[in-house]
Design a protein around this nucleic acid. Structure first.
Lengths: 168, 168
DNA sequence: TTTTTTGCAAATCGTTTGCACGCTG
DNA sequence: CAGCGTGCAAACGATTTGCAAAAAA
């Protein structure tokens, strides 16, 4: 565990932020939390708790599912991680550091998630909120459909079935 | 159950549509299904399975939760009902007949759900999809925040707590 | 040493399902 | 009367929680 005499390993942005967050709440920086943080920022963009748990396990660790959930929750609270649904019946997560807000196109053929950001969409939403004297704090836009890669190969039947199961 | 001699009770739009849907699938029109249909179209805009089940129960009926879920599923498939999430950890539903597509503003103070429709928002989404060669089939936009009525009274702490629990 | 964390297994919660009986077409 | 539909209770899958042991501050 220890770093070579007197030299600390380079701390990543996310580590610094997480430490700061934990300190602010008088919480402790444990090996498990660090391992999860590293896995989150090392893995692909979108993942779920189960996948993360599996990755940690195959990476040699032995962290319980409970700790994974508990830590993901902390990461979300700290703002380092975002929680999405993406139409699944389980939560999806994504690292939020160096990854500004965006919305999602979700392919029902291959499950690919395409991120997009459009300032005009954002301002249109703001305008709508104004009209309703509504103060927006958060929004979630998910567009489900078929991506370019699946356009020709996708089986319509299966697509529609998936569409029906969307939990959004 | 029977209607007075020779005169059938007026059938509502939704009954006709549901009957048609069921016939098309060789499914049966049962008393339970009719009762649920009536409750759905008689109740407020947004509701969940549990609430619906309770309403049916207090209305004298004795329909099992399983049947409620099974029937809601049929209603969704028939297009008579829409299933939403509204940020809750359980599904929400709304009657879809005579109720065109719209998106939602959800107040974290009082749970009020404000519906809105903006064609420019819709076409902007279409434009975004085109740019990505993505064929949209369905979308869900939910904006969480504080409505006009709660603007002054809402407790920020509670609001933020609610925000953190959003399962979207 | 004091306090927080962890792993475990049991508990929840919303929802689904297998089965034996009941009702519709 | 042949199929569907229903209620029940058990099964489910994702997530949460109580508790005693383990680790950080």
């Amino acid at each position: 565990m220890a770093t070579p005499a007197g030299r600390s390993a380079p701390k990543t942005q996310e580590m610094l932020r997480f430490e700061h967050f934990l300190r602010g709440r008088k919480l402790k920086l444990t090996g498990e939390r660090l391992a999860i943080l590293a896995a989150v920022f090392g893995s692909g963009k979108h993942f779920d708790a189960e996948t993360l748990h599996a990755e940690l396990r195959s990476a040699g660790g032995d962290i319980s599912r409970a700790t994974v959930y508990r830590t993901l929750d902390l990461l979300v609270q700290s703002g380092l991680v975002r929680k999405n649904s993406l139409g699944a019946n389980h939560a999806n997560y994504e690292a939020a550091l160096g990854n500004e807000h965006h919305d999602h196109l979700i392919c029902l053929g291959c499950n690919r998630v395409i991120e997009f950001y459009r300032s005009d969409l954002e301002s249109l939403q703001d305008a709508i909120c104004s009209e309703h004297a509504f103060r927006p704090l958060h929004h979630s836009l998910q567009i489900f459909g078929v991506c370019a890669a699946c356009k020709d190969t996708a089986d319509e039947g299966r697509i529609l079935e998936r569409l029906a199961q969307i939990h959004t």
